[in-house]
Each structure stands twice: as structure tokens, then as C-alpha cells.
């Protein structure tokens, strides 16, 4: 375009002025706004990251966004935070993984039953599931605590000391599974409604029973939706502090969010250790997202 006129093409000035003319001012404005937004959203992350690599004097004497100079650079906060949170990480992994898989699997089964099988009273059950999605955590804290006190899981498991010691985590697993089933069911349900009914009927005529159809047809086709629910549930359960605060009583069972909370010093605020801890706590959810990312994209765009 800029070389349309052969006489102008020779001179550099002519070319420059033409280039400037062709620049779309709207587009420039768009990029400026986008760059501003990127800066706005990334600045806390960046500030956290730089702080985590600074020594105590480093973060006191500089602004958070300044990168650490060699004089103040240290890996110590990461080491300290990791040491303090190690137990929490393991405890969290121990209950988050089963809770996530259980709620996704049970949600998928429930959704299959609510979409591809016909039986009386489906609507009523569906309404209960829907209501479950909108139940706020805070509203169930007291009954939840009372329920688990009444059940006394540790006492029931006294025959196996290892499990009894981990009763808090088992309670968390069951609670989060129960709390996750409604949203997983709704997600799977919307996906199963798009599955071809004739395909299910074809499998039926081919001789497969309800569970066979689920196992051999529906389940393999729901992998993208499993990625969505696994990522969603994992993030949700891993980041939860409220239920853990209410249900976990023994310090040895503290989960990662609790141990992160513990990093708050009582005298001096060690922001560098807290920041490093926050990143360590967030890392597993990022890893999960990377692992299931491709399937996740498929699941939310509805492609199968």
C-alpha cells in the first residue's frame, strides 16, 4: 500500500508520513487500554513475586514492584515457606484429590441418570441439585460442625489408628465431595443434554444395559467435561479455608490454606515469606490447569 506511488516510494520521508497516516487511531487506543489492563492485573503478581525474592531489609526499603537487586536477592523465603507448609501441602493433596475425583464421578453419574434415563420424579431431584449449587458455605458451618461432632468419625475409625488420626481430612473429603456434586451434576447435565439420544438408543438396541451404556459410551465421551470439573473442583477445594477452619482441629492435619495462614508472624510481618508461601500454595492449581488445559478448552467450547 505504501509503495503505490512509484515517485514517492524513493524518498524515506514520503514513506514515513504515509505509514503514519495508515495507522488506525482506534487500534492504537485499544492497544493502550489493553496494555494498561495487563499492567493493572499483573502488578500484584509481579509485586508478590519480587517481594518473595527479597530479604527483610530489601522489602522494607524498596517499593514492592522494584525488582530485587543482587544485594537483597535471596531464596530463603521460599525455603522457609516450603518448610513451614510441607505438611499442609501433603495433607491438602491427600483430601483434595479424592474429593475432586469423587465429586466429578458422582456428578457425572447423577447427570447421566437425570438426562439419559427416564424415571419418575426426576424434576424434583434436579431441583434439589440446583438448590445445592446456590447454598452458601457460611450457612452450613454450624450444622456441619454439629453433624461431624455427632458422627464422631475418629471414634468410628478407632480400629485403624492411621485413619483415625486423619479423621479431620476424611471429614473434609466427604464434605467437599457432597458440596461439589451439585455443580458437577449441573455441568455434566448440560453436556449430556447435547449428546445424541439416538446414539444412546442405538447402544440400548445393541444390547447394552444402562450401566454398560454409561461405561462404554457416555464416560469416554465425557472426558472433556471431566477436565472442566476436575480443574474447577480442584481449584475450589484446594483454595478453601472456611471448611478447613471449622473441621480440622489437630495441627498435624492442617491443610495448605491453614498453613499459609500460619505464616503470618505475630510480631513482624514477613511479607517475603508470605508471598513465597502464596505462590507455593497456588502452584498445584496451575499445574492441574496445564495438565488438563487442552481438554478443558474442548469441554467449555462443547467440542467432543
Amino acid at each position: 500500500m505504501t509503495t503505490a506511488e512509484p515517485t514517492d516510494a524513493g524518498t524515506g520521508e514520503g514513506r514515513l508520513s504515509e505509514t503514519i497516516e495508515t495507522v488506525d487511531t482506534q487500534r492504537v487506543a485499544l492497544y493502550v487500554v489493553l496494555a494498561g489492563l495487563i499492567g493493572f492485573y499483573l502488578s500484584p503478581l509481579w509485586a508478590g513475586l519480587t517481594t518473595a525474592f527479597k530479604t527483610q531489609t530489601g522489602f522494607v526499603e524498596t517499593t514492592p514492584v522494584t525488582p530485587p537487586t543482587p544485594a537483597w536477592f535471596t531464596l530463603e523465603p521460599w525455603e522457609l515457606a516450603f518448610a513451614a507448609m510441607q505438611g499442609g501441602l501433603i495433607n491438602s493433596a491427600m483430601f483434595v484429590v479424592p474429593a475432586t475425583i469423587l465429586s466429578a464421578t458422582l456428578g457425572s453419574l447423577a447427570a447421566y441418570g437425570l438426562t439419559k434415563l427416564s424415571w419418575r420424579g426426576q424434576v424434583g431431584i434436579l431441583v434439589i441439585f440446583l438448590a445445592g449449587v446456590f447454598l452458601p458455605y457460611q450457612s452450613v458451618l454450624v450444622p456441619l460442625r454439629q453433624f461431624w461432632s455427632a458422627v464422631d468419625l475418629a471414634g468410628l475409625l478407632s480400629f485403624a489408628p492411621f485413619l483415625a488420626n486423619r479423621a479431620d481430612l476424611l471429614e473434609l473429603t466427604i464434605t467437599h465431595t457432597a458440596y461439589g456434586i451439585p455443580i458437577c451434576t449441573i455441568l455434566f447435565r448440560s453436556y449430556y443434554k447435547t449428546l445424541d439420544d439416538e446414539m444412546i438408543e442405538a447402544a440400548k438396541i445393541d444390547g447394552a444395559n444402562a450401566f454398560g451404556i454409561y461405561k462404554r459410551i457416555v464416560l469416554p465421551l465425557s472426558l472433556p467435561m471431566f477436565a472442566v470439573t476436575l480443574i474447577y473442583q480442584f481449584t475450589q477445594v484446594w483454595n478453601d479455608l472456611l471448611f478447613a477452619l471449622v473441621l480440622v482441629t489437630s495441627r498435624s492435619n492442617y491443610v495448605v490454606t491453614q498453613s499459609l495462614n500460619e505464616l503470618q508472624g505475630s510480631m513482624a510481618q514477613e511479607y517475603n515469606i508470605q508471598m513465597a508461601g502464596a505462590f507455593i500454595a497456588a502452584l498445584p492449581t496451575i499445574i492441574i490447569y496445564v495438565i488438563f488445559g487442552r481438554q478443558f478448552a474442548k469441554g467449555i467450547t462443547g467440542a467432543s
Binding site: 446414539m199 438408543e201 442405538a202 440400548k204 438396541i205 445393541d206 444395559n209 459410551i217 465421551l221
Partner: peptide
């Protein structure tokens, strides 16, 4: 039940198992 009727059916959408 459909499973035990010894019939086979061809559907308009073919209804093949995509996976």
C-alpha cells in the same frame, strides 16, 4: 426390554459411537 428383543435398528442420524 429393547436389549433383549433381537432387533437391530438403523437411525436417521446413523448414531455411530464417535469415539
Amino acid at each position: 426390554p429393547a436389549q433383549q428383543r433381537e432387533i437391530a435398528m438403523v437411525f436417521q442420524s446413523y448414531a455411530l459411537y464417535p469415539h
